[in-house]
Design a protein around this nucleic acid. Structure first.
Lengths: 114, 114
DNA sequence: TAGCTTGTTCGTTGTTCATCGAACATCGAA
DNA sequence: TTCGATGTTCGATGAACAACGAACAAGCTA
């Protein structure tokens, strides 16, 4: 369980962010994190195998959308809302609004809190 | 040269739009069309083969981002800015701003006007 | 009619991606 | 130390995609 790479502000690429947000499961994950609360991975319920979930969370991290923190064997993830707002002002909110309105990512849910 | 399908407003999918905008060339094309002017395909200069350009324009059309019109053997393309604004309010502007600021799609240029 | 121009479509190639199960690593707890 | 829980990584696979050249279709134009 190595510490993963998090891109710096100026390393965050627009196309990488767009690509990361072009998958419904990842959009759902971002929606769950939209309240700014940090979540343990055990709280995230998605209809995919855990290796696949790990992959999706890695894509989000590599794109600079989320930040991952490790504590013991557990991992926690949080939205880099401020960083995204600085880098691409006004981009995140419309995406989240549209996703919520459309029901994109509704397959991703929150488990009983850890 | 058949008339291509244009998705209706409610057929435009968020993830499809995000996916379409995750390619630098397509972002460049959208940037060129951002002024609302209709452009002939001959005006679009991108560093790809014409078949590839045709493909990219098709992806944009299928995603509901652009509208294509045929006139004789020529094709014209225009940004569906109002439709996008209706469907996903506030989404397009930040993307275009970020792209322009970052230089994403600067490889796509405008030829000497037709 | 015979070209020329303009786009589309096709077949191919190589890459990327989403997905899975299995194996591995790590830490905490019994 | 042994076990269980938690993530990561490793192939493997099938699908999607970007890219190209070549061939085709359709409409001007000479």
């Amino acid at each position: 369980m190595k510490q993963a790479h998090h891109p710096e502000l100026d390393e965050i690429s627009l196309t990488a962010v767009m690509a990361a947000l072009s998958d419904p499961i990842r959009v759902g994950l971002v929606l769950l994190l939209a309240d700014g609360r940090e979540r343990g991975w055990g709280e995230l319920r998605a209809p995919v195998a855990k290796s696949t979930l790990s992959h999706h969370l890695r894509v989000l991290r590599d794109a600079g959308i989320t930040r991952t923190r490790q504590e013991g064997t557990r991992c926690f993830v949080v939205l880099r809302r401020d960083d995204l707002e600085t880098r691409f002002p006004g981009l995140l909110a419309p995406v989240l609004a549209a996703a919520e309105c459309d029901g994109v990512g509704r397959q991703v849910e929150l488990a009983a809190s850890a």
